[in-house]
Design a protein around this nucleic acid. Sequence first.
DNA 1: TTATGTGAACCATTTCACAGCC
DNA 2: GGCTGTGAAATGGTTCACATAA
Lengths: 210, 210
Amino acid sequence: MKVAEPTIERLVQYYRLLTQLKEEGRRVISSQEIGEMLGLKASQVRKDLSYFGEIGKRGVGYHVDRLHDHVSKILSHPNVWRIGLVGVGRLGEALLGHKSLRSDKFGIEAVFDVDPNKVGKMIEGVPCFHVDDMPKILKEKKIEIIILTVPAQAAQQAVDKAVASGVVRGILSFATAPLVVPPDVLVYGVDIAAELEKLLFYLKSSTSKE
Amino acid sequence: MKVAEPTIERLVQYYRLLTQLKEEGRRVISSQEIGEMLGLKASQVRKDLSYFGEIGKRGVGYHVDRLHDHVSKILSHPNVWRIGLVGVGRLGEALLGHKSLRSDKFGIEAVFDVDPNKVGKMIEGVPCFHVDDMPKILKEKKIEIIILTVPAQAAQQAVDKAVASGVVRGILSFATAPLVVPPDVLVYGVDIAAELEKLLFYLKSSTSKE
DNA sequence: TTATGTGAACCATTTCACAGCC
DNA sequence: GGCTGTGAAATGGTTCACATAA
């Protein structure tokens, strides 16, 4: 089945909301209410949820527990993903400690840097290796996902080394650089500066005219 | 003129690429080449650039310097934006030091936290205030933009205080929480966990079938 | 009666295809 | 001839409106 990217993104939101509702002991909720809480149209919520089968009850709404399980299964993973983080600067370290990257669905198994003061040490409980050893280590540790937090000018080189391992299938990049990868490697980019520029652009527009 | 959001995002990419090409002394470039370097279709590049007037030369391509100036003007800001950063955890500190937030187009004028060890000190050369003083400080310092790097459960409260200042017009949120704001405040969210989930979802799909 | 599920209409964005200019 | 600029077509995503089921 084909699912649009925005739908997956919203599914993550539904999942979070449902987890919270569940804790609060809420039993039933309507698409209307979900929409209000998340800033979405009710029809959008219904369409998203209907892609994966009929899960609500007509005339009633969605059973919170049941829907939570359902969305959880949609987003579930066949195994525990093994992740490597490349670039232990401040952003890298911040992500290492970040709550959203602590999960039982995936774990950071190794970090990589070029700094001799870091290589060979444990950082946040994770062993640090030299970037040059990526092909070897990634293969040994069966790491399929890379989180990239290196400066832009080092990004392509780092990616090349990671891809050379032959085991990496996905990259989450925080580097503001276009990356060239083989067609079977999936890249998602988080571009902080671009997000800020977008925000400023639309603020500017709404100042002058609208 | 109405410009689509994806176009603005690509404009930022063009700008970066052109800056680099300029440094390398490149004089002329075609939409074809820009597309290849950025992973876009040539027609997409041409359409994006054409929204803001005829800037290329038919039969020749785009003059790098000229196009760089042009894109720079499109993305330019009427003034230097004054930014406040709320939540000086590790992510907040990482962003404070992050290169992409060093610019002559905007500056971080104040940071806010609840930790008494931080309030009253200078952090990365920026004064730190208590979150509760946001309404006052934001107004005093004419801060119109907030970067939000607080835990999810503190996000809405922090936003409420920021909005109460009456001067905040835009929020860049790193919190994984839906935010309620008045309709005249623009919110952009960077949801790291959601990006990773999306990546994993599509990797999972491409494993099982496709 | 109420709220879901969904085809159809709508809107936004991308891609095509070619006219227009260098 | 070559490459841009741009209407028109195609694609992708959202919203509507109502049939359907509890």
